[in-house]
């Protein structure tokens, strides 16, 4: 499955400044592994040492926050848009 991943400004040092990149995988976990292959180091900024999504990062598949879905096991259909967004906003 090929998906599109939106990269926040804070992580664009890993993607040569690209705001949107392609990755492969049928689940979010696989997509992050794919991202790591292309952009070494980026996965560790999104998930912690225990392998869970960091406290201050929100990840969306389409319009849905994956915390309301299956977290890293959330399926990522062909052509899906994955968005990684800093969580500390609002209020």
């Amino acid at each position: 499955m090929s998906v599109s991943v939106r990269i926040p400004t804070i992580l664009r040092t890993y993607t040569n400044g690209e705001s949107e990149v392609s990755a492969d995988g049928g689940t979010l976990a696989a997509v992050l592994d794919s991202l790591e292959q292309s952009y070494p180091g980026i996965k560790g900024r999104i998930v912690d040492e225990q392998g869970t999504i960091r406290r201050f990062v929100n990840v969306y598949v389409g319009n849905d926050d994956v915390r309301f879905l299956e977290a890293l096991d959330t399926t990522t259909p062909e052509g899906a848009q994955v968005s990684v967004i800093p969580a500390v906003a609002g209020g």
């Binding site: 939106r6 926040p8 400004t9 705001s19 929100n58 967004i85 906003a89 609002g90 209020g91």
Partner: peptide, 25 residues
């Protein structure tokens, strides 16, 4: 959408648009 949807949109715009001061982003 909900406030959380609006907040997410604002976070994305704040990451793209030059010269914008989102007070709570």
């Amino acid at each position: 959408g909900s406030y959380d949807d609006v907040n997410r949109l604002a976070s994305e715009i704040a990451g793209e648009e030059e010269g914008w001061a989102f007070v709570n982003v």
